[in-house]
């Protein structure tokens, strides 16, 4: 109960809840869609942060878990007639298993080598999905619209997905906070600061890193199922889009890596910025340029991100912002 009273926890939870409730107020499908994107970004960035921010491992191809989970779940729903929930759960399990497998191997690599390996794995999975007939090969799979009937129609299904995602985002934030405040999390942060020194102090780094990786993979796997169920289509290029993976890094960096609030804030800020740029007649064509320049400025001048910057600027905020 003590944790619930900590502003470090309820501030980000409140933020996420606000995004979730917003479309309920407007009641419009378009706000729901844009909030879906925001919540998805928040949840994905917060998951990535467990590995990136707490453990200090730069996973460039983290989207591989989103894609794999999405494929597994989509297949179960579309071809095997599963309900969304167990399918999402299994999508998460599949992603977690992949992370476990990878964790035992590529987490031995450090720094740039690890980052490169994660890119390689994502690209290998994408190329494999294009060849894998069971998952529809290069064309992927399309959801039979009759399936939505089981959820009370397409509209109801879309709202259900939205609420599921909102709950999942809250869970991710909660887990992120709990990890940060735990002995396990402290071990991760010790690894981030100096892995060899951490091991000398007794942190079993190979095991801790692997669990951090698994944890940071399970949620993207589940989110992938929700997203592609909503989307109705899954194909290799959209499931394993390296670009989205890098956008996640940007979100984490923007908000502040290694903080609970940061990735949530960063995810939301990035998506609102993108939407603003895309809909503005002046910036629509050069939105990528504007985003690039902004990213560069952040990397060069406030590398600890918004929350990190606030925390270092005003010591009093350290008790409020985690």
């Amino acid at each position: 109960m003590k944790t619930l009273r900590s502003p470090g926890l309820w501030l980000p939870l409140l933020l996420v809840a606000a995004f979730a409730v917003y479309p309920l107020i407007t009641g419009s499908a378009s706000t729901r869609e844009s909030m879906f994107t925001v919540l998805m970004s928040v949840a994905l960035a917060s998951s990535l942060n467990i590995l990136l921010g707490y453990t200090g491992y730069v996973s460039f191809g983290h989207i591989v878990f989103f894609g794999l989970g999405g494929y597994v779940g989509f297949y179960l729903i579309d071809e095997q007639g599963w309900h969304l929930f167990p399918a999402a759960l299994l999508g998460g399990v599949a992603a977690g298993l992949l992370a476990l497998l990878l964790g035992l191997s590529i987490l031995r690599l450090r720094g740039a080598y690890f980052a490169l390996a994660t890119i390689g794995i994502n690209e290998a999975m994408k190329a494999f999905a294009k060849q894998f007939a069971l998952f529809g090969g290069p064309n992927g799979m399309e959801l039979n619209f009759a399936i939505y009937r089981g959820y009370g129609g397409a509209n109801a299904a879309l709202w259900l997905v939205f609420w599921s995602l909102a709950v999942l985002a809250l869970v991710v934030i909660f887990v992120s906070f709990k990890v940060k405040k735990s002995k396990f999390g402290l071990g991760l942060m010790a690894i981030r600061e100096d892995e060899d020194a951490a091991e000398v102090m007794g942190v079993v780094a190979p095991r801790a890193k692997t669990w951090a990786y698994v944890l940071s993979a399970i949620f993207p796997g589940m989110i992938g199922v929700l997203f592609f169920f909503k989307n109705g289509v899954i194909e290799p290029e959209s499931a394993f889009r390296l670009h989205l993976s890098i956008e996640l890094l940007v979100m984490v960096m923007l908000g502040g890596q290694g903080t609970v609030l940061g990735p949530a804030l960063g995810g939301a800020a990035y998506q609102s910025l993108r939407r603003t740029l895309l809909t503005s007649p002046m910036f629509r064509d050069i939105q990528l340029v504007v985003a690039g320049v902004l990213l560069l400025l952040i990397v060069l001048f406030i590398p600890s991100g918004a929350v990190g910057w606030l925390r270092s600027r005003w010591a009093a905020l350290r008790r409020v912002l985690e």
């Binding site: 990136l52 730069v58 460039f60 980052a115 890094l249 960096m253 990397v299 060069l300 590398p303």
Partner: peptide, 8 residues
């Protein structure tokens, strides 16, 4: 850290 040059 690596992440900075990658993102830059």
């Amino acid at each position: 850290p690596h992440l900075s040059s990658l993102l830059a």
